[in-house]
Amino acid sequence: MNTLAVKIDAAIRANRFSRGEILPAQEALLKEFGGTAEELKCATGDLVYEGVLERIPTDTEKVRVKVPYLWDIVTGNHSFTNEAKKRGQKPGNRILTFETRRAWPQVMKRLQLEAGEDVLVMERLLFAGERTVGLEFSYMPAKFFQGMTREMFEGGQSTFKVMAEKGLIPDKAVDEVSVATLEEREAALLGLDAGVPVLIRFRVTLSPEGIPIKGSRAIYLFKPGYELKI
């Protein structure tokens, strides 16, 4: 970060600008912190990439102080239930969708299903205490989950605990991460602005035999951390 970025960052930490506040125009910022227009451009860019500021979706020349997520970085297997418990927060969820559907091509590929096979689809808003931490859309091969009901998953219940009761034990996972801008419906559910860039994590969970037992597409309000060794 350049000197100007360090000064602006320090000002934010000292509450000179509050969370969610749009930063003043270039002229006002240069008057307060010094530097050149070029340095300010680099500074705001750096602070966006460091997660201190974010661009306004409807006017990307403007930036505002980013409202931090409840959880900043989560490492390990990113299990929302385990993470909430680890932090002494009560995991909760609100099930938005729970139904059986014919598997579509991407899901067939991820879960290694044949054409015509069904999946149990569940969309949940995830909470830790009262705060929203994510929106998860899961799909599970219906053939492994006969007799599953919505009630079994309600109330913050870990899906893996429910699966274990069916003899399905998660062993490994394959994650794919990409990005998108938040759509209106999801923005409203998550309490964010539409158009904000978000990380989408696709995960396929495998049994010890390497059989896919669950797939999910999730927007989590934290940054997933990965630690890998040779």
Binding site: K41, T44, G45, V48, Y49, G51, E54, R55, P57, T60, E61, I73, V177, V179, A180, P197, V198, L199, K223, P224, G225, Y226, E227, L228, K229, I230
Partner: peptide, 16 residues
Amino acid sequence: IKSIRDIMGAVALNAE
């Protein structure tokens, strides 16, 4: 290099 630690996020690109 024997290990890495990655933190993932999503950002909006600046003009440059």
